[in-house]
Amino acid sequence: MRYLKLLTIFYKNSILKELEYRVNFLSNAFMSVFWLVWGIVGVSIFFLHRDTMGDWTYPEVLMVVGLFTFFTGVMESLLRPNVGAVIEQIRDGTFDFVLTKPVNAQFIASLRSIVIWRLVDVIIGIAVIVYALGQLHVTPTPTQIGFFLVMIASAVAIVYSIWLVMVSFAFWFVKIDNITELFYAFYEAGRYPVTIYRGVVRVLLTFIVPIAFITTFPASALLGRIDPTTTIIGFVFAIGSFIASNRFWNFALRYYSSASS
């Protein structure tokens, strides 16, 4: 309850802050649409030459593209301004103010602000998913929607855990402000269904940098391409990563050296 009240204040303040920079809204909205079109054009090139990508038809791949955009929005509006900003705060020492507050540091560090403009990506992503469903003439069953929501929640937890772990490294290595860019580079692989990748690459993208859980699996759930066991595995995997990342964060906190004059 108290944390809910805090969240309200946090978000009110960051929306106030965002309103200071209104130009950002237009340019962000424009860029979201631009990158979406870019992604669809890219996918279209594959379908010029082949009818399926790793057994996925064009509208099915579109759904993966929609999820890719959706999670780009989640990361840009919720992760980069919070967890992502921790690296900068560690570097200039203002992370002190997070640690000296009588509220769980991970809570403040993870949820203090929101970049509302980037929620445009979330909305566009959902629109593409709905459009793809229309193209497929498919109406998902309640069970499929249920699995889909579980997979989305798991994916959010997994993405968050990855970011938290990446950022935790900044407690030891201050000069790694670009580590989140590294994640984005691998995230590019999530534009396409993971079944397109072969051998080592697929294992890597499923378990090491678990991009598959973020875009492919929720899409599979909605398309009824996934069995309950995989959903449960995904869910357990998400909880596992969440706990592990939290442990790692707490461990890394001990090495905070509080930059100062």
Binding site: F173, K175, I176, D177, N178, E181, L182, Y184, A185
Partner: peptide
């Protein structure tokens, strides 16, 4: 370290 990370982003 930073450059190596940048290289990996390519």
């Amino acid at each position: 370290a930073s450059i190596v990370i940048w290289m990996l982003t390519g």
